[in-house]
Design a binder for these strands. Sequence first.
DNA 1: CGACACCTTGAAGAGGTTCAAGAAATGTGG
DNA 2: CCACATTTCTTGAACCTCTTCAAGGTGTCG
Lengths: 262, 262
Amino acid sequence: MFDPVSKTLATPTATTRSASVVPINSHSIKVACSNCNLRELCMPLGLNSEELDQIDSVVNLRRKVKKGSLLFHNGEKFTNLFAIRTGFFKSYVASEDGREQVTGFQMAGEVLGLDGIASDHHTCNAVALEDAEVCLMPFDRIEELSRDIPSMQRHVHKIMSREIVRENGVMLLLGSMRAEERLAAFLLNLVDRLHARGFSQSELVLRMTREEIGSYLGLKLETVSRAFSKFAEDGLVEVDKRNIHILRSDLLRDIVGRTDCA
Amino acid sequence: MFDPVSKTLATPTATTRSASVVPINSHSIKVACSNCNLRELCMPLGLNSEELDQIDSVVNLRRKVKKGSLLFHNGEKFTNLFAIRTGFFKSYVASEDGREQVTGFQMAGEVLGLDGIASDHHTCNAVALEDAEVCLMPFDRIEELSRDIPSMQRHVHKIMSREIVRENGVMLLLGSMRAEERLAAFLLNLVDRLHARGFSQSELVLRMTREEIGSYLGLKLETVSRAFSKFAEDGLVEVDKRNIHILRSDLLRDIVGRTDCA
DNA sequence: CGACACCTTGAAGAGGTTCAAGAAATGTGG
DNA sequence: CCACATTTCTTGAACCTCTTCAAGGTGTCG
């Protein structure tokens, strides 16, 4: 199955959708992974309690990110990876001449910041599309821990490889699909990842604008809007602003998969 | 500077272009990194001799890959990363309906196979575009070594992150550039990477067909051909089949960078 | 309530694709 | 080593998808 934006982790875990349930007063506070309900999404399974304690010592801070504000930006020194606890992000790159390309949308349990490892500086930007909360994971601590705990090491490698595979899928999408195929693939991927987090298989709320979807899919916002209208007209989805109800995911899948025909 | 296909490693090292200088009779043979002239491209610098010995024990096999044959393919069990010694590869993904998308072109000193880590199986294919030779690096040995040698660990992380950053660049290219911008960016990137390996800054020989370039750039082969003709007509390059002579790299750079205008 | 961001829809236009034909290079087998 | 089949590349012309430009509508927030 084609999967342009594969989920960071497959383990389904119900999460709350509200942004600020954890009492946080300061800019960032100490937390413990060992009793985090997203642990299955962030960390390798089957660790003993000693290893869990070690991990608690890595993920020692949280940070709230207000809607619209940057988690990190191009050029910024890289020190942390970020695990999303709540909220929704977009990451994007910009060329000198001002063009922007959304490179991904990230949700709870997914990791941000991998781009920064290459040069010790971030090369893309990450913005919260709704009020969000992230765990800070100092990368040198992650590397230390990876040396001590092989399953942790393997986990880190898998997360990075998964991102490479995801981007391969996006290249396929951008390089060879038509507008409606792209949007269908996008919707299916999004609802899939939400479903893996305990949400509906058929309903979703878009956290991003048509323009941001368009940027991600290599389309103009008008084209995205028209494709939504076409899907609605054909009875594949109901579209009410950013509330999407998928009526015929089977037909959406057909659209993604077809080589030719209309 | 926009860089859709950033080089795997920046260290310039002269290499020979011929494919079969090393005497190899069997399918694969033992070799030593410690006296490989590509070591600077593949391995972290500043290792002591004991660490170099350890690395020699990782990269213990070479394999010849004939032009047109697969190094690995989608679905194949993942066990090794591959460091290219000589030759030129393309990697590509395929969707069920038969569409193919070239995801990258790789040359000496670059690493193939990172996609396989995520699921223990490769998700893309790698084909030699000319007779090639690769070093086999068993990934579990790489992980062992990474646990012992922090600079090795960091090196592996950087290689993976670099691939993520490269793909971000390709997404920008596919999502927001016009045909001629894409081809200009492609040529500049290719000649850059070749130059870092001791080749000319202005002359290059394409190892791939127009169709493969088109697949990578999200264009049809006719469009690629026309863009080449346009560049030649405008005096930016000389094109003789697959031999490209870049006359005005400054103007090529302008083409990549411009937001609008003609 | 007004300003602003976001979304939809129509009409015209452009860039790239598709289809087609021919030329040049490459490889194969005798 | 040559003849022939095949692959690769180029170029033209018609077509189509998506973009651009434009206008109007809706929802949101200070």
